[in-house]
């Protein structure tokens, strides 16, 4: 192999490993779920991408490179969808992001108070998977129903066949593209948080 390619492969693998470890450190150091997801996204995109690039340079133009490409493309696509689903499930379950409050301290904040327009959207399942019919929209109990919170009581309800489950799990995937907007909203929140944090550090 050409020394240039060896050098490039070395550099990509080392950088990839560096970003990979950075993401894992962030997974442990960050204060709440959403910032941890933010940290992991570093290793899932840059880390994986650079490691794969290093391996692809090493193997040259061959079938292995194509396989590597498939792996990394599927990983990037599904990673985005899975982290979106994770954030959405956490928000629906009432997970509170840790934000800088008015007193400059880090506190778990209900994001509905920050972004009131999130409230009705969090309270309802997405339209394509809506449980309630149109007639139930006016019912206040139905409007405040949060799916994740009511799961403990209904032990006698139904379970579906295993084959259906796989399909049902995949269906959430289809909603991913439309729901990306909401993910950007979470991004906005986390950047507000980091701004606040810098201010907090400066005042110390």
């Amino acid at each position: 192999m050409e020394p240039v390619f060896t050098m490039a492969s070395w550099a990509a693998l080392c950088l990839g490993g560096f970003f990979y470890v950075i993401g894992a450190v962030g997974l442990n150091r960050m204060p709440d779920l959403f910032t941890r997801m933010h940290a992991v996204s570093v290793s899932d995109t840059l880390g994986v991408g650079l490691l794969t690039l290093g391996m692809a340079i090493h193997s040259g133009a061959s079938l292995i490179t194509v396989k590597l490409l498939i792996v990394v493309l599927v990983l990037w696509t599904t990673g985005a969808v899975a982290s979106h689903a994770l954030a959405r499930a956490a928000l629906h379950d009432g997970e509170k992001p840790v934000l800088v409050g008015a007193d400059g301290r880090l506190t778990p904040t209900d994001c509905v108070t920050l972004f009131p327009e999130l409230g009705p959207r969090l309270a309802q399942p997405l339209s394509s998977e809506a449980v309630e019919t149109g007639a139930d929209q006016g019912d206040p109990a139905a409007a405040t129903w949060i799916p994740g919170r009511s799961r403990s009581g209904d032990t006698n309800a139904t379970a579906s066949a295993a084959a259906e489950m796989g399909m049902a799990a995949m269906r959430i995937n289809m909603l991913g593209a439309l729901g990306l907007m909401k993910m950007f909203r979470i991004g906005t929140m986390s950047s507000a948080r980091s701004r606040g944090r810098t201010r907090d550090r400066g005042s110390r």
């Binding site: 396989k67 498939i70 792996v71 599927v74 990983l75 599904t78 969808v81 899975a82 689903a85 994770l86 959405r88 499930a89 629906h92 379950d93 399942p125 998977e129 449980v131 799916p147 994740g148 009511s150 799961r151 209904d154 309800a157 139904t158 379970a159 579906s160 066949a161 259906e164 489950m165 796989g166 399909m167 049902a168 799990a169 995949m170 959430i172 995937n173």
Partner: peptide, 26 residues
């Protein structure tokens, strides 16, 4: 490649369970 797909299916199954309390909830 198989692992990638399995990883996502596993994660999404658990998340779906969390949101709806069921996997095959249509």
């Amino acid at each position: 490649i198989t692992y990638v797909l399995l990883n996502m299916i596993g994660t999404l199954a658990v998340l779906k369970f969390f949101r709806y309390g069921a996997l095959g909830h249509a």
